[in-house]
Design a protein around this nucleic acid. Sequence first.
RNA 1: GGGGAGGUAGCGAAGAGGCUAAACGCGACUGACUGUAACUCAGUUCCCUUUGGGUUCGACAGUUCGAAUCUGUCCCUCCCCA
Length: 383
Amino acid sequence: MENKKEAISFEVTHVCKQTGARTGILHTPHGDVKTPMFMPVGTLATVKFLSPEEIKEIGSGVILANTYHCWLRPGEDVVQAAGGLQKFMRYDGPMLTDSGGFQVFSLADSRKIKEEGVYFKSHIDGSPLFLSPEKSIEIQNALGADIIMSFDECPPYPATYEYMKNSVERTLRWAKRGKEAHKNPETQALFGIVQGGEYEDLRKYSAEELVKIGFPGYSIGGTSVGESKETMYKMIDYAVKYLPKESVKYLMGVGSTDAILEGVLRGIDMFDCVLPTRIARHGALMTSEGRVNIKKVQYKKDFTPIDKECDCYACKNYTKAYIHHLYRCNEGLGMRLMSIHNLRYLIRLTEQIREAIEQDRFGDFKDEFFKKMNLNSVDSRGF
RNA sequence: GGGGAGGUAGCGAAGAGGCUAAACGCGACUGACUGUAACUCAGUUCCCUUUGGGUUCGACAGUUCGAAUCUGUCCCUCCCCA
């Protein structure tokens, strides 16, 4: 049941007659954004190498920051004193903070999970840290993003049924505790996170219990942690099936082109991923003709843009030869141009997806894309 | 003309009698990267029919069971003094 006014609201604007995939608008305190969307990740209150103007220019709707990382540096008190994340980083668009739940997974070697929360060792200096649902929400309240996330355990894959069941139950208790600790639901929307690994009954249980607690948006976690694409798609189906149709759905940590397409087909509205920015920094560019490894000598004298079909700042103004040179010399401008390009590539993909949905031909669009990129729906890299 | 240093795989550079087909760095090549401990990580980089074989450390000739490493001659580079 609806209680107080929530910080965000979501409206479905069109459902593709061909596939059932949908477009929508997410209303946030920092503006409206169209879905399906891809959200660039800016862990430390910065999308690595990009200025706010550049982030805007690529057409991104929402950007992420991370609770764990911002807590350690610069400290949520600093961000709060600055007037919140947006003011601090001079970015006026919508933002989302992840809860630190992913660090429960990624920093697994130096952490211990207990009912009360998670004991970490700082990845910076090894000092002891403790993050709980309450603490995570408190930090996120101070950081002030439009959307904040429940503190969850992102369990490893594979995990036994027994482990997953305990984890899901604990994550549900944490979700409840987080919601109770949340101080400003009218300016920050707290999302719940469905877990349960590959087990349908656990995903169902997780989703239904979260809905009982009640959140303005739901996300699907525990994906892209080593499982096959086929398994991931099942995980999505198992979760989406038991979530309210009208609620906004966020698939966490997924950003390969094939998975975005498959996710949209299954009802996902939001995606985020470090993939485009990370592989950009590593010299891999996503293009309409597949992956371009800019470091190859073959680009030394290639004076054409990264992608002829791309409208990004890098493609409109620079050549592969120049970016190749910058990459080889480890120059920051190279990192920047490559990041801009990959992000724009994915965001442009979501624009095309929206258009296709509105024209009721998303199925065709997806098939054509897979065919063109030589992907198959179950086992593909998609960059 | 006198004195000195040196020539090692694409480049730089270790190695000073067997454990060396030769460390390491760069360069080159492959691959990975999915709610960012990530401008990172892994593998390959003398040749071949590659769990093995062949040919290497300026050239040639020696010493030795064994030489990139020791000896001789030659070729070439660099530095200092005239």
